[in-house]
Design a protein around this nucleic acid. Structure first.
Length: 523
RNA sequence: GCGCCCGUAGUUCAACGGACAGAACAUCUGAUUGCGGAUCAGAAGGUUAGAGGUUCGAUUCCUCUCGGGCGCACCA
C-alpha cells in the first residue's frame, strides 16, 4: 500500500506519525500531508522551510515511487506517484484477487452486536438500518484481520414479554397491535399472560425475526438469550463482582451501580427495592458474559432512542477493565417515515410501522442495503414511502452493478480468444506501460485506494465510505470505457486493457461482497 | 427544565481541522457505423440555519440564538 509506504518513510525520517491523505484533485498530487504545518505550529518553524527540508530527505530515500514531490502554500507536501508504479499495481491486484483489500492491521477478537430488537414484533426500518451497517462493519473488520462474532441479543424475559402475552390474549392490558397479534391469538391458547408471552416471543423470533434476518442477507454467529443469563446466575455473579469492586452499593433497600464514578449523571439502580432486577442488571451481566468469552473489543449498534444508556454501558465496561477504545457504541439516528409531507409516527405498540421485510419485497435486497449503507449513522433519515419506489429505480447501486455487468460482457467476448492473457503470473507478457491514457491511470489510482478505504473504516467505523468509494470506482471505469476501447486491434494494448478491466471487476466484486450486494454478470 | 444528535444545491445525501464544499436525482445542452445509452461530456444550482470566538486555515472545534429529532423512572 502506497499510503502506508509514505507514512512509513516519514516516520523513519522524522519519527512522527503523519496524516497522509488521498487527494481527489490531481493538481495537488495523489497523496498529501499537512505534517509541516502541524510541525510548524508545535515548534514555531516556518512550514514551507520545514516541508522543503523533508522533501529533500524523502527524495533521496524513495525516489523510484514518486514522479515528483511538491511543496505548496501554506505548507502542504504533495506526492505525485509515478506512472510505472501505478501500472505495475494491476498485476498486484490480479495476483491477490479475492484477497485484495485485506490487511492484518487489527488482530482483535471482536464482538459486533446489532439489531437485538425485542422479540415482540416484526423488524422495522430502523432495525434494517442498524442491521445492514452492523453486518457490513463486521465484514470489514474481518477483512482487517479481526476475528469477528456477529451477535443478536434477545430480550426474552421481562415486562415487555408479559405485555406481549396480554396482547395475544387480548385482555385489558393489551398493548401491541398488528396482524401478527391476531394470528398469534389463533395459534396460542395459553391464558396465563407470562406463559402466553413466552410462547409468542418464541414464535416471533422463529417465524418472523429469523426469516427476516436471513432475507436481509445477515448471518448471526450467536443468538444470546437474556433468560439464559438469569438461568445461569450470571446476573447475580456480575452484580457480586461489582460489589467486590465497590462499584455497587445498597441504598433505600435497592442496589445501585456507581456509574457516576465514570462520568454518568447519577448512579443507577440494579436491583429495585422490591427485589426485581432492572434491565441494566442483565445488560451488565451480558457485557460481562462477552468479556468472559474472551472478546477484547465490543461494538454495539443502537438506535438513537437508547443514547441515554451509552454512558451506563461504558461505565459498566470500564468497571470490568475495558477502556474506552475497547468499547464502541454506534448510535444510529432514527428513521422517520413519511408519506409525502405527512409523517407517519412509527410504533410497534400502535401497530404502525414499516417492516424491513416489506421494503425488501418492494425494492429488492441490493437497493435496500445500499440505501442505508450510503448514509452516515448521524444522519436523521427521512424515509418517504412515495419517493421510495421512484428512487429505488434510480438507486446508485445499479450504476455500480452496471459497471460490473459491462466488464463481464467484455470479458465474455474475449473468452475464446487465444491471445488473452488474464492469468495471474504472466506479468511479462503484458505491457502495462501501454496504459497511459488519463482515464486509465485514473482507474488504477482508484483501484489502489481500495485497501486504504478498508483500513480507514476498520479504524473509524464510518461504513458509508465503502459505498462512496465504489461509486467513485464505477464512475472512473465508465469514463475509461467511453474514452478507450478495450477490445482494440492492437493486441498489446488490448491485453493490457482487458487486465485493467479484470482488475476493476475484482475490486468491484470485493467491495460488493463486503456490502452484501450481488454481482450480476448481466442485467 | 436538563442531556445527546441534527440543520449543507430544488430534493436525498457526502466531505480524517485543510487547498476552489462534492455526488446522485430533478432541470437544460450535446454524444451511439466503438466492446451494453441502466452510459458519457457539459451547463445551471451554495453567505454550509444565524451571530460571535479559537486557528496560518472552520461544514468540521468552542459559546450563544433559532429550528427539528430523541432521551431524561426503583419503565422496558
Amino acid at each position: 500500500m502506497i499510503r502506508q509506504k509514505i507514512k512509513k518513510t516519514i516516520k523513519e525520517l522524522t519519527g512522527i506519525e503523519a496524516k497522509v491523505e488521498r487527494q481527489n484533485n490531481t493538481e495537488y498530487g495523489d497523496y498529501s500531508t499537512n505534517l509541516a504545518m502541524v510541525f510548524a505550529k508545535n515548534f514555531k518553524k516556518n512550514p514551507i522551510e520545514t516541508a522543503n527540508l523533508l522533501v529533500e530527505k524523502i527524495k533521496k530515500s524513495d525516489k523510484d515511487i514518486f514522479e515528483k514531490i511538491e511543496v505548496a502554500h501554506p505548507g502542504f507536501i504533495n506526492f505525485f506517484i509515478s506512472k510505472e508504479y501505478f501500472q505495475n499495481q494491476i498485476h498486484e491486484i490480479l495476483k491477490q484477487g479475492k484477497d485484495f483489500g485485506k490487511n492484518s492491521l487489527l488482530k482483535d477478537k471482536v464482538n459486533v452486536e446489532f439489531i437485538s430488537a425485542n422479540p415482540t414484533g416484526p423488524l422495522t426500518l430502523g432495525n434494517g438500518r442498524g442491521g445492514f451497517c452492523g453486518d457490513v462493519l463486521a465484514n470489514i473488520l474481518e477483512k482487517s484481520g479481526c476475528r469477528v462474532t456477529r451477535e443478536y441479543y434477545i430480550n426474552d424475559v421481562g415486562e415487555q414479554i408479559k405485555k406481549l402475552g396480554h396482547s395475544v390474549i387480548g385482555d385489558s392490558n393489551a398493548v401491541y397491535k398488528g396482524d401478527y397479534i391476531y394470528q398469534l391469538r389463533n395459534e396460542i391458547k395459553e391464558k396465563d399472560p407470562e406463559k402466553a408471552g413466552e410462547q409468542a416471543s418464541k414464535y416471533v423470533l422463529k417465524k418472523m425475526i429469523k426469516p427476516t434476518v436471513k432475507k436481509m442477507g445477515i448471518n448471526f454467529d450467536v443468538w444470546s438469550s437474556e433468560k439464559e443469563l438469569y438461568k445461569k446466575n450470571e446476573v447475580e455473579k456480575a452484580l457480586n463482582s461489582l460489589l467486590r469492586k465497590k462499584l455497587a452499593y445498597r441504598k433505600d433497600n435497592a442496589l445501585w451501580f456507581k456509574s457516576s464514578f465514570f462520568g454518568d449523571d447519577k448512579d443507577r439502580v440494579l436491583v429495585k427495592s422490591n427485589g426485581q432486577f432492572t434491565y441494566l442488571a442483565s445488560d451488565i451481566a451480558y457485557l460481562k458474559n462477552k468479556i468472559n468469552r474472551g472478546f477484547d473489543k465490543l461494538i454495539y449498534f443502537w438506535g438513537a432512542d437508547h443514547h441515554g444508556y451509552v454512558k451506563r454501558i461504558e461505565s459498566a465496561g470500564r468497571s470490568f477493565g475495558l477502556d474506552s477504545e475497547k468499547i464502541a457504541i454506534i448510535v444510529m439516528q432514527l428513521v422517520r417515515l413519511f408519506e409525502g409531507n405527512k409523517e407517519i409516527r412509527m410504533s410497534k405498540r400502535a401497530g404502525k410501522y414499516f417492516t424491513i421485510d416489506k421494503l425488501i419485497d418492494e425494492v429488492g435486497l441490493d437497493v435496500a442495503r445500499f440505501f442505508f449503507l450510503t448514509k452516515s449513522p448521524e444522519t436523521h433519515l427521512n424515509f418517504d414511502l412515495r419517493l421510495a419506489k421512484e428512487q429505488s429505480e434510480k438507486n446508485p447501486v445499479y450504476y455500480l452493478q452496471y459497471a460490473y455487468a459491462r466488464i463481464s460482457s467484455i470479458l465474455r467476448k474475449t473468452k475464446d480468444e487465444k491471445n488473452l492473457s488474464t492469468a495471474k503470473n504472466k506479468k511479462q507478457q503484458i505491457d502495462y506501460k501501454l496504459l497511459s491514457h488519463s482515464s486509465e491511470l485514473r482507474v488504477i489510482r482508484q483501484l489502489i485506494g481500495f485497501p486504504e478505504v478498508i483500513e480507514d473504516i476498520g479504524k473509524d467505523y464510518q461504513v458509508q465510505k465503502l459505498p462512496q468509494y465504489s461509486i467513485d470506482l464505477a464512475a472512473d471505469f465508465h469514463r475509461f470505457y467511453s474514452s478507450c476501447q478495450v477490445l482494440t486491434r492492437d493486441q498489446g494494448l488490448r491485453n493490457a486493457r482487458i487486465n485493467l478491466a479484470l482488475a476493476t471487476k475484482t475490486v468491484l466484486k470485493n467491495s460488493f461482497d463486503l456490502m452484501g450486494i450481488s454481482s450480476p454478470e448481466k442485467m
